[in-house]
């Protein structure tokens, strides 16, 4: 592959979801490197290490033990070297409250976990092909919740 891989990080406590996530990226024909952590604490520890490859996109589950997604989001946005990472919320919940809160805290996109594997593949493909650095300026509330 000529291009450098897109570095992807997923923080999700659910083993099945991690499996779907991994398998989806295996089937997507894009050069990606997927790294996974099991919860918020593990995520923050991972990001605190020196000399690691920072992800281009972080997929963040909200409902996690020890430290939940919202808290991680808050912390990341306060750290200068992490705040530019594109963040995709990746949750079962589609409650307005969660959507509103994460949007305000600066997440880039909100993905409701789909119940169909093909849909999942399409969503992930779409998310990683967007240039989030460029997209940030046009961010608005209406297209924040990703729908296919």
């Amino acid at each position: 592959m000529p291009k450098n891989p897109i570095h992807i990080l997923l923080a999700d406590d659910d083993e099945d979801d991690r499996l779907f996530f991994k398998e989806a990226f295996q089937e997507i024909k894009i050069n990606t490197s997927v790294k996974m952590v099991n919860d918020g604490v593990e995520l923050m520890n991972h990001l605190a290490q020196d000399n690691i490859q920072l992800p281009h996109i972080l997929f963040l589950d909200l409902n996690m033990p020890r430290k939940n997604g919202i808290d991680c989001l808050l912390e990341i946005k306060q750290l200068a070297h992490l705040k530019d990472i594109a963040i995709a919320i990746y949750s079962t919940s589609s409650s307005e409250k969660d959507i509103e809160a994460t949007f305000i805290q600066g997440a880039n996109v909100y993905i409701k976990k789909p119940s169909d594997f093909n849909t999942l593949k399409k969503i992930l493909e779409q998310v990683i092909t967007v240039n989030w650095q460029y997209q940030t300026s046009g961010l608005n509330r209406d297209n924040y919740l990703l729908s296919l």
């Binding site: 659910d14 099945d16 979801d17 779907f20 398998e23 409902n63 079962t92 919940s93 409650s95 976990k113 789909p114 119940s115 169909d116 594997f117 093909n118 999942l120």
Partner: peptide, 21 residues
């Protein structure tokens, strides 16, 4: 209802979609 019931259901559906595929 919103979260905990949906979660296993979603997985059932996803796994079914994996089998059918």
């Amino acid at each position: 209802a919103s979260h905990d019931l949906q979660e296993p259901l979603r997985k059932i559906q996803t796994f079914i979609s994996r089998i059918t595929d």
